[in-house]
Simulated scan of single mutants.
Amino acid sequence: MSRVVYKTLVSAADKFVPSKLRPLWEHEAGPKTIFFWAPAFKWALVAASIDEYRRPLDKVSTTQSATLSATGLIWTRYCLVIRPINYALSLCNFTLGLANGIQCYRAYNYQRKMGM
């Protein structure tokens, strides 16, 4: 059902894409594919991770931050070996890994200093 709705929306939008944007629209990792939409929505996870910097360090889970960091960095590599190569998703995953790596380091340092 959702596949039919998606194809209908793409077909309707197809008529309105200007010729200058047509190469992007038709690209194998363009808006017609999951390769485009996965990073578009995953940036919300990156934003939430960066927003966590405002959270008190005694409330930050080092396990969760380390897991998200590892996941981001592992998937960064994967995005560079799949076909088509998905640079947008790779950048998103790298940013997720970096943001959570920094948060994990901050929380670990805090817990070490507090003797937790």
Rank of each mutant, 00 (worst) to 15 (best):
I102P: 02
P39T: 14
A70Y: 04
F94S: 11
K15N: 07
L98V: 14
E28Q: 13
T95W: 01
L24G: 03
W37F: 12
A47G: 08
K15S: 09
W75E: 05
S65V: 04
G72I: 05
V46F: 10
I102H: 02
C104S: 11
V5W: 05
A88M: 10
T33S: 15
G101D: 04
M1D: 06
C104R: 11
P39M: 11
K15L: 10
A29K: 14
T62A: 05
E28I: 02
V10F: 00
A99Y: 06
I102Q: 07
Y53F: 15
W43Y: 13
L89W: 02
S19P: 01
T33E: 12
T71G: 04
I82F: 00
S65N: 10
W25N: 12
A99G: 06
Q111K: 15
M1G: 08
T33A: 12
E52F: 03
R112S: 01
C104I: 02
T33Q: 12
T62D: 06
Q103P: 00
V10N: 00
I34S: 15
A66M: 05
Y105W: 11
A107P: 07
W25F: 11
K15H: 09
Q111C: 02
Y87W: 08
A48I: 12
K42H: 14
T63A: 09
R77H: 06
F41I: 15
G30L: 06
A47Y: 13
F94Y: 07
I50W: 10
G101H: 09
W43A: 05
